[in-house]
Design a binder for these strands. Structure first.
Lengths: 190, 190
DNA sequence: CAGGTCATGTAAAGCGTTACATGATTTT
DNA sequence: AAAATCATGTAACGCTTTACATGACCTG
């Protein structure tokens, strides 16, 4: 059985205390959606495979008449998770961003200057919203030593919001530069 | 016919002067791979559809005995490209990064501290390499006013490498912080 | 003349999202 | 009483990658 990043995401979420498939998906939406989006339709089959591979235990855990399966890491699951964390090798190529906004910026030259500036402002607004979005999620993560396992979730969230803030500023500066330049050339033109 | 981001990537590349499907793929690999990866097996069928939709013209353009199809934007293609650039609406959620390294960092707590630091260093090295990678590509883009259409390609490349540099620094600072903290707590422990 | 690049395509497999389906429980 | 949430799953669809196939041209 070959494990994918999603497999380790599930193992890791179980380690952080999520028990059901549904709960894993909730946690993933709240915390890892930005760098590893996941859907329920992937989680349930994957839980089955991890169980078959002996990396997780399953037990029935009904809530009243509502059925629920509770999962737990086995020793082999713990080991597999740690081995994966250790096996990371630096890549020479950057991670793909796959952002349609960036793609549009790449071709912005096809528009007249005022519309180029509009596009840049829209892009900046997107990153500003993204920054705020993660910052809000960050605030609800407890920071006390009792929740030590939540330390890195807080770190990745901070890294995310700081990165988006940086790009936001970058685009703001770009807009100012292009606007100045336009003002100068039109003044020259008279 | 519903157009996808890939469709507009092709229209935009034709506008930048690429003529054949092969050339479009070359340009995309060099310039837009980071935020919109593309494979040849997508490009060729898509060229056919864009031709059927009347957004591009096709003409035979053989090089000696080697066959080649040359494509060109039609007026409707130009219009469609500009309309797409104008239609961008800011999103409230950030673009997904889908980076396995970040996912590992999220779960780093499962490792002992010294291995956490190793992981952070590896991640930092990945971003350093990514930064350098884009910076190299940036250097070959001409900046003279003759190549005005290459202005935004240069801008997106600079934004990319600057962002990776920012993350690199961020991770370097994180590693220093965690190392200091470890030194203090072990000193206390004695 | 062998290996790499230019050039175009097809087929299959894998992966992920969306939609569908079901039913209990909680909230408004 | 209706709507949202909890909970688990399946099916269909679409996108992307990988592999395969073919052949001309160029470089060492």
């Amino acid at each position: 059985v070959k494990l994918k990043p999603l497999s380790y995401l599930i193992l890791g979420m179980l380690r952080l205390g999520a028990t059901s498939g549904y709960a894993i998906k909730q946690l993933a939406d709240a915390a890892t959606r930005h760098f590893w989006p996941t859907s329920l339709a992937q989680v349930y089959p994957q839980l089955g495979q991890l169980h078959d591979a002996g990396l997780i235990d399953r037990r029935a855990d009904p809530q009243g008449a509502r059925a629920r399966d509770a999962y737990e890491l086995t020793d082999r699951g713990q080991t597999a998770l740690r081995a994966w964390l250790r096996s990371y090798r630096p890549t020479n190529t950057p991670p793909p961003l796959r952002d349609e906004g960036m793609l549009r910026l790449f071709f912005a030259d096809a528009l007249p200057l005022d519309e180029q500036l509009t596009l840049i402002r829209k892009l900046r607004d997107s990153f500003a919203a993204a920054e705020q979005h993660i910052r809000n999620e960050l605030e609800v993560i407890p920071h006390d030593p009792e929740h030590a396992a939540l330390r890195y979730p807080a770190i990745t969230a901070r890294l995310g919001s700081d990165s988006y803030a940086y790009i936001k500023q970058w685009l703001t500066a770009l807009e100012a530069d292009l606007r100045d330049e336009a003002a100068h050339s039109s003044a020259k033109g008279r």
